[in-house]
Nucleic acid binder design. Structure first.
Lengths: 196, 196, 196, 196
DNA sequence: CATGAATGAGCGTTCATTCAT
DNA sequence: AATGAATGAACGCTCATTCAT
């Protein structure tokens, strides 16, 4: 996949990276309507070069999204590894979500741009899903994570996070949402209207 | 704001309503890129007429969003009224959020379109804010709603709801998120890693 | 076909005509690669106006070609009418071909552009075909036109005429080719190598 | 012209031939818009190599056309040689034209591409002209070829032949056109409207 | 010398907005 | 007041040509 028949030329590699950086920041700044010419200019290359690396705009956005999901995977696997070695799976799950919304801030517009362009959305990465699934199972076994939590729940929360908001808003969002992942949350009766 | 210098002519009123309906459905269907010509055609008027009522596309989208926030206001005031007459503020708050995500489903694309166009976002309606503020206060007094909850929290959650997802996803989201609004949620120590 | 639901606005009619004129001359001058912007500029309108009248370049070229085939039809029908009233069908056929190559000179590049753009080619007009068919029949009956001549032969010759050449070349071409349409031509034995 | 200062390297010779073959087939298949990259790929070389041999696209097309005119020359000289040894110059002239339209079928797109690119057109080859001139003179002396026929007439006919049509159409075209080259054709009075 | 990545003017087309009718 | 034709900047993309490797 990432291997090439021939190694790419050094300048081509550099240009590809610069284009991806430029695309990420331009899309983050101007939304899905960021122009290819502007992305190219921001990358310091001509449009033709951009198109040599990414034949269509959809391809370019897909590549940016892929970079982002790769980050998710790395975070998920690291969280699982820590939970295995040090225990505390709920803590790791919490930390994973906080970390995700942190790194996602720059990628928000990218994420919202993706569906509009027909690109596979965030959350298709099976390696990330496997790691999260195992992490949740550890938490449920430990009795700290609510027993009906699924990987899809995590993805839904990530997709619904206010990633484009300032850090304070995102932190507050986490404070409101994270309790819902704990074992105790499942026991709350919202209709009881009693202080518990 | 909603008052006019002169009463609008009957046909102008009708045209305005038809344009708003058309705009809502076109934006919902085709996203923020719905064209002014298509909206005009769907409304059964010419573009020129559309521009007489809404000088720019941004104005049109703002009007659609305003219609939506008006709905929020109505819901919030009804919830407050019920809480006052029947008690159970947490229940009403919960019900409000569920209702909001229900009516919002049709408006999701509209909401996502708004920021892209520089329109003031959902949540600026002071009447809704007043009602919610009072409702939250009732709940805190009753000891069922978490004591640090604010109106902005509610707006943040609404903005972060997966409104464009199927009903099942939205219901699940509510199950995960609503516990975070209760008094007990504030007592959970996410780092304790104990079953509580 | 040429009727409209509503009569076009006067300026729209004028613009359509100017666009067709400009398209004909630009395509004649620069070949099928004449740019839409240049055509629009030559017509004194903006590109958008051009696209309002002709949604794609193919449509524009098709319209230019249609104008040309309409001319062919008129010529063919006039030739038939004269042959009926005055006799001399071979003379009329000859005159038709000469007239066609005369009016075609300006349209040559257009004709060559048409196939390249997927437009139906010259020669699809059934009214012209009907008139020519009848004209040929008259000539064969009179014993002056070769008895195996068909309408397709005429079209083939028109398509093969050196329309883009100067008038002298086209006249010479006619001198060489027209004898082949006569009854006597069919009697020539090219292999006999005798003076006849 | 075809001589070189230094003999080309063996691989350069091979590359030049492969490029010309590729150019001929690509232009024949995709028309004048065949891309330099595609031609290079079809030739199995990189674009840079293509440009080393032919500094511009026009040069490349000119070379393809030159190859074609070389074929014409060979045919014309062979026809002349046969007419000298065996007599029957009209037969040879006829055969030459039939042969030309046969070999030209593959080159039609090339020919039509040439003018569009500003390349000198077919018919500049003086060796072919000399042979044809002599051949025509033989035919006039024999009394079988029309006495006013010139080499330019032949070229005009070749350029105007429906080379891109199926074989049947081209054969029919020959049947219609060849009589016009005979001595007898010059005697036909198109206006007489008599059966001769 | 060959390679193929980079260039950038130019293309066909779209669409928010303006203005003559 | 409504109409819809006209505007033109901007878009995604192509391709003949150049030049670093």
């Amino acid at each position: 996949m990432t291997s090439q028949q021939r190694p790419m030329r050094a300048d081509a590699v550099r240009n590809r990276a610069r284009i991806l950086d430029a695309a990420r920041s331009q899309i983050a700044e101007h939304g899905p309507d960021a122009g290819m010419d502007e992305i190219a200019a921001a990358a310091g290359v001509a449009v033709g070069t951009l198109y040599r690396h990414f034949p269509t705009k959809t391809d370019l956005v897909a590549a940016v999204v892929a970079e982002y999901t790769e980050q998710l995977t790395v975070e998920a696997q690291a969280a699982l590894a820590r939970a295995k070695s040090q225990g505390r799976p709920l803590h790791e799950l919490t930390r994973f979500l906080l970390e995700v919304i942190r790194v996602s801030a720059m990628n928000e517009a990218v994420k919202s741009a993706a569906p509009a362009l027909g690109t596979a959305s965030v959350g298709d990465d099976t390696r990330a899903a496997a790691a999260l699934s195992e992490l949740i199972a550890l938490g449920i076994d430990a009795g700290t994570v609510r027993s009906d939590l699924t990987v899809d729940d995590i993805y839904a929360l990530v997709l619904a996070a206010p990633l484009d908001q300032p850090d304070a808003v995102r932190q507050r969002w986490a404070q409101l949402v994270l309790p819902g992942l704990t074992a105790i949350a499942a026991t709350i009766d919202l209709d009881a209207e009693s202080p518990l």
